[in-house]
Each structure stands twice: as structure tokens, then as C-alpha cells.
């Protein structure tokens, strides 16, 4: 049985797809057979971030409609043979995804995979609902910014009331906080909500902090998940997150300010 992870946020542009690509790659690199599914029907982008946009033949909706088999639609990642991508459809038909169809695909994938990562679209419409409905774990991606924190809280409410686990009175979805685009310098200046501030408000278990990083854009330019850029801060932060999720003890990094040469000379701490 696979563990189903939803990467969600409510708000758009906070780093859901970047995170989905990175953690799916991270899990696969650790030897777990992983599938990552794009639920953003009509606006697929996971294929671009994963660098497989030219290999898309069939998609999620084709499989639901029986026009292609799961094996035909799954794209094997070129960097890691344990990682497969199921792209979203570019159809404009909002009702293309059905609860039965999604449930059947996840059930079929569960037989063969260790982890299934569901990349949720922004908003609280059907795609976002179905991405989280079957989840066992939720990675709530949040920016240290008021609208993102509010939307994350809204998503937490939905996870605990409108999911399969909630409706069937099963053990609730395990929720984790991923704070992205974090800038310790701005936190220190009092310009940005700190990790503790966000945790005070959302009361979530912190899985990790991803610093604001140039590496995220360069990775997406190249279509390579940022976690493969092992020298970058964001890549290392995602590696830590995957490790922590799998139960490894890893101290939190990237929460404190990087000290430059002057900071090192004059810094008290």
C-alpha cells in the first residue's frame, strides 16, 4: 500500500509544484518507488518543472476516461528510474476529474508504488478537493506572508472535514508545515513573519523551512527538480525535509541569518 501525500496551500504561487517535484524526486532517490500526479487540470505545469514536457502523450484524464492505460500515461523520470510522473490534462472541461476516477487510479497505483505525491492546484475547487480527498499526509506549503497563512489555515479546515479520512471517521490526515521563500534577514529586521509566528498561528508540525533561493528559478529554467542541485540551499533544505519525513533526525537549517564576512567579524553570536 502506498502512502498518499498531498502538497497543498490554497494560495497560488507559493511553491506547491516546486515542492511536489522536489519531494517526489527526494523520495525516489531514497529508494522508494514514487509517482507524482499533477491535479491542475487545464493548467498543467509539473511536466515543465520535471523536464518531461516533450514526452507527454497521455494524461490523467485519458486514464480516467479509459482512453489510455496507467502504464501508457506514466512517464518515467530521466534522472531516477524509481520516479514516475502522471501529467494533468490540458482540457478546459472542469468535470474531467471525478472522485471515482481519481480513487480508482490511486488504488491501482497503490499496489505498485511506495509513495504517491499529489500536486494540488491553487484554490478550493474540484481539482484541489480531489487532490487532498484521498490523502494520508498533507504537506501545507506556506509563505511567511498574511494571505498565504490565512489560506493555509482554510485548507487545514478542509483537510479535517472534507477528506476521505474525515468522512469515514478514520485516523485524521497527518499535516505538516513547509515554510517556503523564507528570508532570515528580513525576519531579523522585523519585515517578515518568523517560523515561530507562523507556527503559533497554524499550530502545525514544522517539516522544514526552504529559504528564498535563486536556485529554484534556475532549476525550473532547466526542468530539473531543485533537490538535485545538491550545492544549493533550497536543494539541501528539501533533502532535509524528505529525510525528516522518513523519520531521520535532522536539525533545522536555513532559519537563521547567513553571516557575511562583516557579520562574522562583528557578530555577537
Amino acid at each position: 500500500m502506498a502512502r498518499i501525500i498531498v502538497v497543498t496551500s490554497g494560495k497560488g504561487g507559493v511553491g506547491k509544484t516546486t515542492t511536489s517535484a522536489a519531494i517526489a524526486m527526494g523520495l525516489a532517490k531514497k529508494g522508494h518507488k514514487t509517482a507524482v500526479i499533477d491535479f491542475d487540470v487545464g493548467l498543467r505545469n509539473l511536466d515543465l518543472i520535471m523536464g518531461c514536457e516533450r514526452r507527454v502523450v497521455y494524461d490523467f484524464v485519458n486514464v480516467i476516461n479509459g482512453e489510455a492505460s496507467l502504464n501508457q500515461a506514466l512517464i518515467r523520470d530521466k534522472h531516477c528510474e524509481l520516479l514516475y510522473i502522471l501529467p494533468a490534462s490540458q482540457t478546459r472541461d472542469k468535470d474531467a476529474l471525478t472522485q471515482e476516477g481519481v480513487g480508482k487510479i490511486l488504488e491501482d497505483l497503490s499496489k505498485d508504488f511506495d509513495y504517491i505525491v499529489c500536486d494540488s492546484p491553487a484554490g478550493i475547487e474540484k481539482g484541489a478537493h480531489l487532490a487532498m480527498y484521498f490523502a494520508d499526509d498533507a504537506f501545507v506549503v506556506t509563505n511567511p506572508e498574511v494571505s498565504s497563512v490565512r489560506d493555509s489555515d482554510r485548507m487545514l479546515g478542509l483537510l479535517s472535514s472534507k477528506s476521505r479520512r474525515a468522512e469515514q471517521n478514520l485516523e485524521p490526515i497527518k499535516e505538516y508545515l513547509l515554510l517556503t521563500r523564507y528570508s532570515p534577514e528580513r525576519v531579523k529586521l522585523g519585515d517578515m513573519l518568523s517560523v515561530n509566528d507562523v507556527q503559533d498561528i497554524l499550530s502545525l508540525h514544522l517539516l522544514g523551512v526552504i529559504p528564498e533561493s535563486k536556485a529554484v528559478l534556475t532549476a525550473s529554467n532547466a526542468g530539473v527538480p531543485v533537490i538535485l542541485d545538491e550545492k544549493s540551499d533550497a536543494g539541501q533544505a528539501y533533502s532535509d525535509i524528505v529525510g525528516r519525513y522518513l523519520g531521520e533526525e535532522k536539525p533545522h537549517r536555513f532559519i537563521d541569518e547567513k553571516k557575511g564576512i562583516f557579520g562574522k567579524l562583528f557578530g555577537g553570536k
Binding site: 498574511v146 490565512r150 482554510r154 522585523g190 513573519l193
Partner: peptide
């Protein structure tokens, strides 16, 4: 440190989130 906008943000969020919950 002219103004600490982060603490203002936190205060606004805490009130809002409590209300919405």
C-alpha cells in the same frame, strides 16, 4: 527598526484566524 510590520501581521492574522475558525 522603523516599524515592526511582522508583529502587526501576526496580530492581524491571529485575530482573523480565530474568528474564521
Amino acid at each position: 527598526n522603523k516599524s515592526n510590520t511582522a508583529s502587526l501581521a501576526k496580530e492581524r492574522l491571529q485575530i482573523l484566524v480565530a474568528h474564521e475558525r
